[in-house]
Design a protein around this nucleic acid. Structure first.
Lengths: 342, 342
DNA sequence: CACGTTCCCGACATCGTTTGCACAAATTAA
DNA sequence: TTAATTTGTGCAAACGATGTCGGGAACGTG
């Protein structure tokens, strides 16, 4: 199957390329009969417009770029599925880039996406990103941008996030109701929006339940594969060690579970553990892991919808807002003391 | 930051665009001093060549396309990481597409990748794909193609796969050595290369150990979220039910584990379970899951290397071969009867 | 002094598509 | 009948970069 151009159709029909172009786009000024012949010929040759040429002309590419920290992460891969579902339905292609949690990579990705002329950009910031000038440039070039999950307050754009405050609040309060009093919080880089919101929810739950917020129980970090263990040791050697762990990410929850088990700390007898994760095997872990589940797919869907809305109504500015999607607390045996006692 | 073109530099320096173009590419026919001035100006304006324009001209885009069934799968997300690592080092961008296990989507992805002028294509076939004509067309257009994991014997291209036969053989033999005699094999679509190879390994291990291969113990399917349960019921109601399960994918292993636990079948006392998976939490499951691990990242790396080699030495044809990478058997408690008895 | 080389560089066409403008033919209005 | 309008189509420019020509200047050679 060759790849035909508008010229081939023009030659075949003995008309000019402009006429073909207009006929294909259904322009009103083309004779119905000519249109029909062009359509028929395009059909027959299986003509597909060359997106590269279209992009060069500066018209829509019907592709949206997605830049996110890493794909090997349930939250993000589910979010991508949500994005693709919507995009596909509305006739857009999705081009995925990973920043690998690197600021430099993220900037390169933005450049790449822009120069490949995506119609819009969907992003979740890398953990190294604190400066968002590269995104301001995207906006300056009038390319629609929607942030999700890891967002920046410095950008005046539509954002789609989970109810991080509410989720953290619910998780913490659940631990308190189970009788926990010294709740540690393992979380990621402090400048990220999600970190701050979850921390705030955690703190609010403590304070509303008459517990003191203790800086010492909160740990921030990038937590590579082997860094959670030492952190747990440090916490357990405090004068007043934690009786529960609330972790802020998929990786942290798994790392923490592993570290606790290696140290023969029984869950939930010695310490409870609850994660902020989208692990699809949380219920099969040992012990089954309680989590705050984010509707990752829904977040992706809504973000994609907003973005495409913006792309398609570029003239009339759409309202800029932050969409906050409820999280769900799923209690399993890693925090259920009563169940264990039975 | 504006986006400057070669024209801007030409105007700025009062020379022609062709001269700028050649100077930038270090052509020998340009005066050293002129080159210097052009370079300096390009640097100052932060000039970046427009990849779209380059693609239109038909030159290299320095991007490779990756088309795979789904990202939300440890094997594939790790493979992508391997691919990106190599590609990044060698100066290529990676554009990821998901076929969502759909033949139609896969064809659309190929089209999209081709028309976005990737320099080469890295693919793992969707489970619906049996006809590979769309890939033959890629080859006809002289675009390098490397297949990995799910490959097709009908295409004469470089392939990078795990040692599926060996892995399946090892898993099956391990079960036999643990005293299992009725080993069921839950696997995916029968026409996929990986299915056939694993089945062959399973069968060979049985026969070399004096056990009969029993068609009834092998089940093929797409196994949606709730389809494994009924399958397990069916098998367990055979006159001579299985005493072990060997599953062929991440999803199948998890589904099977869940189904067995729901039915109160104890693992490994009642039945053993071993998967062919890359789950990064296999050791934290209940029970810890024995698996055959594929070196996903390495597969991605090697595939990317081969592809880029082909892209860069397009003239001299590189040898076409199938690279087979050893798998690793990781024994955990889901198959370790002795450990349980202690 | 005439001619051939070599060295630098610019004009122009090209890739596939869209679009503003011109223009011919057909139709309508005066 | 003539002028004005409508309708349908083609020409050419543009998007950003490359590459093929070919030309002017400076130099060497006979």
């Amino acid at each position: 199957m060759e790849t035909y151009t508008i010229k081939d159709i023009a030659r075949e029909l003995g008309i000019s390329t402009s006429t073909v172009s207009r006929a294909l786009r259904g322009s009103y000024e083309i004779n119905a009969e000519t249109k029909r012949r062009v359509m028929e010929c395009a059909e027959r040759l299986n003509y597909r417009p060359n997106p590269i040429a279209l992009s060069l002309k500066g018209s829509a590419s019907r592709a949206i770029g997605v830049i996110l920290p890493q794909i090997a992460n349930y939250f993000f891969s589910q979010a991508i599925n949500g994005i693709e579902a919507i995009a596909y339905n509305r006739g857009y292609h999705v081009i995925i880039f990973q920043s690998q949690e690197s600021y430099e990579r993220e900037m390169a990705n933005v450049q790449q996406a822009m120069s490949r002329k995506v119609d819009g950009l969907l992003m979740s910031l890398s953990s190294e990103t604190s400066d968002v000038e590269h995104l301001q440039e995207v906006l300056d070039k009038n390319v629609p941008l929607v942030l999700f999950d890891r967002v920046s307050s410095e950008l005046n754009v539509t954002k789609v996030v989970a109810d991080n405050f509410g989720g953290a609040f619910a998780a913490t309060e659940h631990l308190i109701q189970e009788g926990r009093r010294r709740i540690a919080h393992l979380t990621i880089q402090p400048w990220l929006s999600i970190t701050q919101e979850r921390l705030a929810g955690y703190r609010a739950a403590l304070e509303q339940n008459g517990l003191e917020f203790d800086e010492n129980l909160v740990r921030y970090g990038t937590f590579g594969p082997d860094e959670v263990g030492p952190m747990v040791d440090e916490l357990m050697h405090l004068d007043s060690p934690p009786d529960a762990f609330f972790t802020a990410s998929d990786r942290l929850a798994v790392g923490c579970l592993q570290a606790l088990r290696q140290r023969d700390l029984h869950i939930p007898e010695d310490v409870s553990l609850i994660g902020f994760t989208n692990l699809n095997v949380a219920h099969l872990l040992n012990p089954a892991l309680s989590t705050v589940v984010q509707p990752a797919q829904e977040i992706g869907q809504i973000a994609a919808e907003r973005l495409i809305d913006q792309i398609e109504r570029k003239h009339r500015a759409l309202p800029i807002e932050t969409v906050r999607i409820p999280t769900e607390l799923v209690v399993r045996s890693s925090t259920r003391l009563e169940a264990v006692k039975l």
